[in-house]
Design a protein around this nucleic acid. Structure first.
Ligand SMILES: [Mn+2]
Ligand SMILES: [Mn+2]
Ligand SMILES: [Zn+2]
Ligand SMILES: [Zn+2]
Lengths: 141, 141
DNA sequence: AATAAAAAGCAACATTGTTGCAATTTAATA
DNA sequence: TATTAAATTGCAACAATGTTGCTTTTTATT
């Protein structure tokens, strides 16, 4: 999985290349997990205000660059989108989100498709999030 | 679906039959939706303190009477458990939770089983919550 | 260098949720 | 019925996450 350079992505999406935006994007790209604002705040507290981080995440999400997941604790987390699937106007991140009860990590299990769910005809589906709790590979003893 | 009387349930679980506990339980039984503390607070603000409601919900959940769902907004909601499935020591509420984007209601689609998800062997699963967003039967135009 | 737009900072606030402790109420017992 | 222990509640204080309005700073363009 080749990563496009963060600065190039920011360019393409019409964002300005500020230090914090570059760092946040590179971090989310490399970490390979779904990160929360509080986590970013710990990492980058000298570089940016809390609110700035919230706004960066919101801006990235709006462009289809990252997607937002509510984790099992009700905290918003964000992870890279698959650029084949997501655009400014529509997200398609219908994969499993695994929440490890040991280390607290949340990861996208992109390879695990969520099976089609048949709803009663009177219901219509627009989005879906499958959170699974358990022990991740790192924490398996 | 016959409902056991609230007072009887409280008795059986070793709870005291206070007015607010009876009312809260009856409400959750009848409403047929997953309710949040803020909702209960609006309903019962003259009858009980905010904290009391949080504690009632936590107590009921611990006994396997109701189950806790994090909704798509990250707010905790609670709905009756199926007494065949849940006990003090173990919850089994692996059904779909439908979040209506129109009316905000969250309902348990108990009849819709969540298909088995095959995780990589290095992961172990302990719990699971499938939140679906869309338009519910009432809000369908 | 001047400019407009974007981004960031800061303060204030909202909402949801938790904890400690004192006061009250329930239910069991004498 | 009076006593009592335990359960329940109320209140105050706090924590965490998230939002909004407004000003200042920075970026990229002209
Ligand atoms: Mn994901
Ligand atoms: Mn449910
Ligand atoms: Zn783990
Ligand atoms: Zn609805």
């Amino acid at each position: 999985m080749k990563m496009k350079k963060a600065t190039q992505i920011l360019n393409e999406l019409g964002f300005r290349k500020t230090e914090i935006r570059i760092k946040v994007l590179e971090y989310i790209q490399k970490i390979g997990k779904a990160v929360s604002q509080p986590e970013l705040e710990k990492k980058f507290n000298t570089l940016a205000d809390r609110v700035t981080l919230y706004r960066i995440l919101a801006a990235f999400e709006e462009k289809g660059l990252i997607h937002k997941i509510m984790d099992v604790h009700g905290v918003a987390r964000y992870a890279m989108c698959n650029e084949k699937h997501c655009t400014e106007h529509e997200h398609h991140d219908e994969h499993v989100h695994f929440n490890c009860t040991e280390c607290g990590d949340v990861v996208c299990l992109d390879s695990i498709k969520v099976p089609d769910i048949k709803l009663p005809k009177s219901f219509s589906l627009s989005r879906l999030n499958l959170n699974i709790e358990g022990t991740c590979d790192n924490c398996q003893k």
